[in-house]
Nucleic acid binder design. Structure first.
Lengths: 203, 203
DNA sequence: GTCTATAACGTGATAGAC
DNA sequence: GTCTATCACGTTATAGAC
């Protein structure tokens, strides 16, 4: 009990705020929402909310981080040790389909991602790390799948990872613009195309 | 000579402004630039610039439209009637490599694209049209290439088009975040993977 | 057609009471 | 820890002189 009360409590409240903000954005969408709007939504004043975060950008990055944690816990995991193309595909498609239910978060992600192109932007490091993390896990899984013979070895696992990330992000952008776009269909087709060429294909 | 002087002249000036703004953004980059900055760069006051455009968003959409026209004239064309995977690839990669020299325009495009997710946004229609246009041209070219036997027919041309758009946009986002990313390499690898499976591949 | 000046607004951030 | 009140700023857009 070295740290009494306030510190741990502050952290918990901060965490609670983030989860509420996450839920609000998922539910009600995000259109360049201001700190004030988020504050209203989570039941604090704007100043009260900023008490827990240094700046607007930090707040939004933290929301994305929480989302990653939540998604990872709920949906990931199984993908991490699959060595079969079908299982890998199922894992990714589950997350993609889940995103359909939280357009606000996808919107926030896309918006922040393009803002974060600036190396000075507070979210820059987050996107670099997240991308690298995604690709390394992905490449490892595809390398295993290649060893197991369920994925073509005509393309390097790192290239597959980068391309999958690109297809995913790009398809999601198309979907944000036009919600009739089938992100899972596009990514699914790409993953399907990674199946090893059947022996006698194409005379 | 029904319309004398002012009208035609206004249009010409508007066009000139757009080309200058395009050059400035290409050269000096775009980081959520304000109307004032663009105005300074093209040698007008902010009010003077807005005399030619209804709003900031309209200005930026028009800049993107001019870019499309310029790129199409300078780099497209040949792709439009190619029926060979190699030729198609060359065409796309030429544009992609060109984009490396104009990061500001790519940044502007990405930023606007995510803003335009909102159906109310002035650029919404532009991105819908542009995407549809790109994909229809693309799908037609790949359909021809499939007929000619230079592209696998395991994937529908429309799917290839959508996926190519996604890979392209997604890879470009990765590049904006980290300029060491090789967009042409990623897209090139994807296009390469569309080659028809060689007969005896994989025992 | 282009300018200066300014309106009208929303923003993030901060000071200070409680 | 949370509030109210306010600051300081940058924005787009407009009015009106020239």
């Amino acid at each position: 009990m070295v740290q009494r009360g306030s510190y741990a409590k502050g952290v918990a409240k901060r965490e609670q705020i983030l989860h509420e903000a996450l839920a609000v954005i998922a539910r009600e969408g995000y259109r360049g929402a201001s700190v004030r709007e988020i504050a209203d939504a989570v039941g604090l004043s704007q100043a009260g909310l900023l008490h827990y975060f240094d700046s607007k950008e930090e707040l939004f990055v933290e929301i994305l981080r929480v989302r990653d944690r939540v998604d990872m816990a709920a949906l990931g995991g199984e993908t991490d040790d699959a060595a079969d193309l079908g299982a890998l595909t199922d894992g990714y498609l589950r997350i993609i389909r889940h995103n359909t239910d939280v357009p606000g978060l996808v919107q926030l992600f896309a918006q922040m991602a393009s803002d974060a192109a600036d190396p000075q932007h507070p979210a820059h490091a987050y996107f670099l790390e997240r991308g690298a993390m995604f690709r390394s896990g992905c490449a490892a899984a595809f390398a295993r799948a290649q060893s197991a013979g369920t994925v073509t070895d005509r393309v390097a696992p790192e290239t597959i990872a980068r391309t999958l990330q690109a297809v995913w992000d790009g398809a999601q952008m198309q979907w944000l613009l036009d919600s009739s776009v089938d992100v899972a269909g596009i990514v699914g087709a790409y993953l399907h195309s990674l199946a090893p060429a059947p022996e006698g294909q194409r005379a």
